[in-house]
């Protein structure tokens, strides 16, 4: 495996090792290790049930792993195993430093709150209590994710799938997180809408350089967006490598390219 020289020299933003998670008899994640460098985008591919979404949920601290260490190179958290943080610090970290976009917008958005309100919520949680600031920050964040601003105050339930994903993205990046987690961000969207969302993600990657982890079973998405790719199979990382632009199907034929 070859890594870019600049990446070798910097310390990774995220370092996970020995990650295990099982649900009863089902082993969901087994001994996964993962490094993510600042500004880098890493894709995780694998067939359904291979544990890739579970890894993302664990990294977003939605549930505890069975074992594993999780380190983030973020001021105030450098010496900690993130999994062992208490509830309040975990919430603080999740709020300020991790942004997530789910495949299903119902997981990431409040459907009865306006789109701008969904974005503003993150700022309110971070303690902002000025209405004018909330309004302009929500507008700015939605503009970055290329959301049509004339629909700023529409309920997400009235938006198209692509727009809902843009609201989720705006919400995720509202507080300028260090880590962005994307869980199948374009699955279920129309191909042309997919292309537009991917364009936005690419531009965001260029402008903001947030370290990003993308989970998808769509190799096309991973190929376009990520620098490196991990292949997961039955809860384990079966192979890892650089994404070559225009790479053909990998040798592991167990992957569905859909």
């Amino acid at each position: 495996m070859i890594l870019l020289p600049q990446l070798v020299q910097t310390t990774p933003l995220l370092r996970v090792s020995g990650l295990h998670k099982r649900y009863g008899a089902v082993v969901a994640v087994e001994d996964v290790a993962l490094d993510l460098y600042p500004g880098e985008t890493v894709g995780i591919v694998g067939e359904s049930g291979s544990g890739k979404s579970t890894v993302l949920r664990l990294l977003n601290l939605e549930e505890p792993p069975d074992t594993g260490t999780y380190q983030l190179d973020i001021a105030g958290y450098v010496a900690d195993n993130i999994f062992a943080l208490d509830r309040l610090r975990r919430r603080e970290l999740q709020l300020r430093h991790i942004g997530i976009v789910y495949q299903n917008p119902h997981h990431g958005l409040r459907m009865r709150v306006s789109s701008s309100g969904n974005v503003a919520e993150r700022l309110i949680m971070a303690g902002e209590r000025r209405f004018a600031t909330l309004r302009s920050a929500a507008r700015a964040s939605l503009a970055v994710s290329e959301f049509p601003l004339e629909r700023l105050d529409d309920l997400p339930a009235r938006l198209s799938g692509g727009m809902q994903q843009r609201v989720q993205l705006a919400k995720a990046i509202a507080l300028k997180p260090a880590l962005l987690l994307l869980d199948e961000p374009t699955t279920g969207l129309d191909v042309s809408v997919q292309a537009l969302v991917i364009d936005t993600l690419l531009r965001l990657r260029r402008e903001r350089q947030i370290a990003t982890l993308i989970v998808s079973h769509d190799l096309g998405v991973i190929r376009t967006l990520s620098d490196r790719v991990l292949v997961m199979r039955r809860g384990q990382v079966s192979s890892a490598g650089l994404t070559e632009p225009g790479a053909r199907r990998p040798r592991n034929t167990r992957i569905h390219s859909n």
Partner: peptide, 18 residues
Amino acid sequence: ADADYAQVWLGLYEQLVR
């Protein structure tokens, strides 16, 4: 317990917007 009252201000935000 956490003094986590952001939802209340989100409600106010929604009222002002609507």
